[in-house]
Amino acid sequence: MALKGRLQDFGITQLLNLINLARKTGTLYVEGQKGEAQLCFREGKLIYAFMDGVEDSLPLLLQRAGKLTSEQAQTIMAHVRGKSDRDVALMLIQAKHIQQQDVSDSVRQHMLNLVYRVFGWNEGSFHFEPSELPVQGKLTTPVALENVIMEGSRRLKEWERLQDELPDLDIALKFADRPTTPLRDINLSVEEWRVISFINPSNTIRQVAQYNNMTEFQIRKIVYSLLQAGLVQIVRPPRPAATPPGSAGEKGQAAQADASAVRRPAVKRSLVHKLIDRIREL
């Protein structure tokens, strides 16, 4: 009987702990709000993973890891059509295009990135199919789950903190009027530069992420660091317009226009001066 349940009741961390401790072999199917993942394990170790039914080919993984250029990856893919990843890896290693370590590092990194994404899912369903493993020819790399669980939990906490610090991605950024750090002293990563190039009060953070093909986690992390460094500032959305005071239907119209807009009272200057005088006397 397969293990099955809801992520709300039994989270990813608990599932991986169980698989690790019970040294399980098989495939864990996870269906969350943001996709479907399949994670394969052998004797409690993660060996293979893919998302949304898409198993990226080895040249693509090597390209993402910076081991191949885009042109190289395209050429290789065109020449090795129909061959298994294992055969492609052997061919590339023998031709000295890459080293064996590059292959295992790239596959491992791809797998881990995918698993860490699944850590953020707290709603959805899962089931575990014992003894079901990847088909022959797939490249597998055993990864001990203890470290994955620790790193995943750390990232989850970081993610929660970032979400707390920057809950709304539909706000825009602008360059700080008076940056706390002199610009010439700043070293930015390529990713940070990509974000910086889109900083504009008319672009929301979400749009910047979309332009740059970044995940919410990546964009939050970069924007948070730019905010902390005092390089950029959040452009606050404009305050709701003041409701014209005194009109009879004012409240109803305002409520219809914007349920959250609260009336501002019509107060004369003289009243405010009266308040000031009285409070001074107290």
Partner: peptide, 17 residues
Amino acid sequence: FREARRILDTFRSYSPV
């Protein structure tokens, strides 16, 4: 402080006072 910032933003969104 973080909670204070949230409260500030919430009240600010209610009214332009």
